[in-house]
Design a protein around this nucleic acid. Structure first.
Lengths: 343, 343
DNA sequence: GAGTTTTACTAAACCGCTCTAGTGGAATGG
DNA sequence: CCATTCCACTAGAGCGGTTTAGTAAAACTC
């Protein structure tokens, strides 16, 4: 009861294995009648191509790689990651391309995987996430000459095509909204400065603060963890002239910040407005619901999949694509500041 | 500048390609000196094995599959899933086995992927999650004769080895704790009754209620979503003799329930105790922190990886393994009920 | 109707690696 | 000293496909 090969089909259909190959791959060289017969036999025998055999002949691996260098905790906690994964999957499986997922310790290990999988012909391309400042992975992938799409940017991704969001514009819209509500003291619990997008957000906030003549607009960098998000919040809320609005770079930190406010007896939104730069189930299910910048992460994954598949089909053909700028979804965590209302 | 093959190495080292193969695979047949020379040449040429070529010879695919039939939203939201993935990865990558992840619409599609990947020799085995009552996937995998490990059980997984947790014992410990605090009216926002573990938990609660002479112990099944978790909570809290403690089958529903309590003006834990059957970052970062049954999901993933690799190495050798029973982690969301304290 | 093109098909090389069978020479045994 | 065993190594088949070169017959051309 071993699996059938094209040789078995050839024998059973009374033709050569080349004829079978032609028939199964829809190429000329066999008459309609013979083709039909071969296909019937193949289907009767429940034949399926042996991936490795095809790949050996130089065909595609029909798989793309996603290598992530993050602590396990983060993978589990970040709704962003799961949604991206799901979107990516959906886009890939439509063309029956598999996703090879690898979670590694650090960037060095990540690069090693890129090298290995490329030379082993294990995948046809890569998706690069968490773009960093002077990212070391970019030159490696360029050098390997393997198709790859970067999520992040603009800038810093060399010649690799990128799918980017306008973080600057998003931050400006957010600050404009808070300023319009009357907030003058805004603080920012930022992410890791090693990341490109974190730097852009910090710079955008600074610019907006200057333009809007805000009293203060400090950004506190963190490692994106709930712990550092909480302690940054604690520090900010303990200051004598504490901010009336907090911007969190991630949903996890926003929720952690909300908990700190509750623990310190600061009412949200009455005494403090809270905004998250990232939207997810998290910001929706807590009480009060957190005002957040929403983007369709699932769709984003689908876009990346499409770009990568195009890059595999025709290397060099894919250009940078801008994804939709995140839009503000207002929930219960934002309101005009207390002092302003009293005035 | 094409990638080197063992033929290139053979030529360069002045030996036959069989000798190269022996040397590279650490098997007898070459003298230490020759072996050393071959290895040096291979490393100089930066040679790597071509996976497909090896696989064609009947070797392992060095990959296992995880196919999940869940809505994308759930994948993104459930910390459990991400942690399991990370743990699985860690366990697999130690033996440099890749993980093929596929997210599909429904069980029928899932089964189709099992069939395809098996006959394409795409993977060496599968991890089965979300074990259901009369699960249709089990007989298919048994029939395909492919190594597989089930997360769930005991029971309902046929001859496939399973890694299971004692849900019954966990539920009993939880109810005992609530009863000891003085709670008499306990309600249970359950998951989907199609799942084995949900049924077991419901049954365990009923038994405990009888044994402890609790006034009430109703279980409300849901689809695990935050929306149904919230509406179930709303309904339970609206009843004239509402429960003084709520048990949620998942962390997401527990947080959603917490938000509903806040929205209805029910103080937690003063007016209502809340417990989650699943622990994660979520239960930790909200305020008040939610008392939950904790298990090490990352480690669980590692265990599954080990079991599956063993099953691949030696089919039929792997037996059922019981994972650690989840243990209660008490946070701020549980307390003796108000009425009891007054009495 | 002879020459040319097209069609339908086959034989065999090839992809990169593993592994078995075979070979010649050195070491061992009696 | 000859027979045997051992060792280091090579030749080549085989894994399951794809693809190229080749072939015989049928279908066109003028």
């Amino acid at each position: 009861m071993t699996r059938p090969t094209i040789d078995d089909i050839a024998r059973s259909a009374g033709v050569s294995k080349s004829a079978v190959s032609f028939a199964l791959n829809d190429r000329p060289g066999v008459s309609p009648a013979t083709r039909e017969r071969i296909l019937r036999v193949a289907s009767e025998m429940n034949w399926r191509p042996h991936k490795a055999a095809r790949a050996l002949g130089g065909a595609r691996a029909d798989a793309v790689g996603l290598v992530v260098a993050r602590p396990a905790q983060t993978i589990g906690a970040e709704p962003f990651f799961g949604l991206l994964l799901a979107g990516l999957q959906a886009g890939l499986s439509a063309r029956s391309v598999a996703l090879h997922l690898m979670i590694v310790e650090d960037t060095a290990a990540e690069i090693e995987v890129y090298r290995r999988w490329t030379s082993e012909r294990h995948v046809d391309g890569f998706v690069l996430v968490d773009l960093q400042h002077r990212d070391k992975r970019v030159p490696v992938l360029e050098d390997l000459g393997v198709p790859a799409v970067v999520i992040g940017g603009p800038g810093g991704h060399g010649t690799l095509p990128s799918l980017w969001a306008d973080d600057r514009e998003a931050m400006l819209s957010l600050v404009d909204y808070l300023a319009a509500l009357g907030h003058r003291r805004i603080a920012h619990v930022a992410g890791d400065e090693a990341f490109h997008h974190t730097r852009r957000r910090i710079r955008a906030l600074k610019d907006a603060a200057r333009r809007l003549h805000l009293v203060d607009a400090v950004s506190v960098p963190t490692d994106f963890s709930d712990a550092q998000g909480a302690s940054a919040t604690r520090a900010l809320l303990s200051s004598p002239d504490r901010p009336s609005a907090l911007i969190f770079d991630s949903d996890v930190m926003a929720v952690a910040g909300l908990a700190v406010a509750a623990e310190m007896g600061v009412a949200v939104p009455a005494g403090l407005s809270v905004v998250s730069f990232e939207d997810s189930l998290l910001t929706r299910i807590v009480h009060p619901g957190i005002t957040a910048l929403h983007r369709d992460t699932f769709a984003l994954g689908g876009q990346v999949a499409a770009m990568l598949l195009a890059a595999v089909d025709e290397p060099g053909s894919v250009r940078d694509v801008q994804s939709a700028t995140p839009r503000l979804t207002v929930r219960e965590s934002t309101r005009a500041p207390y002092t302003e209302r009293r005035a």
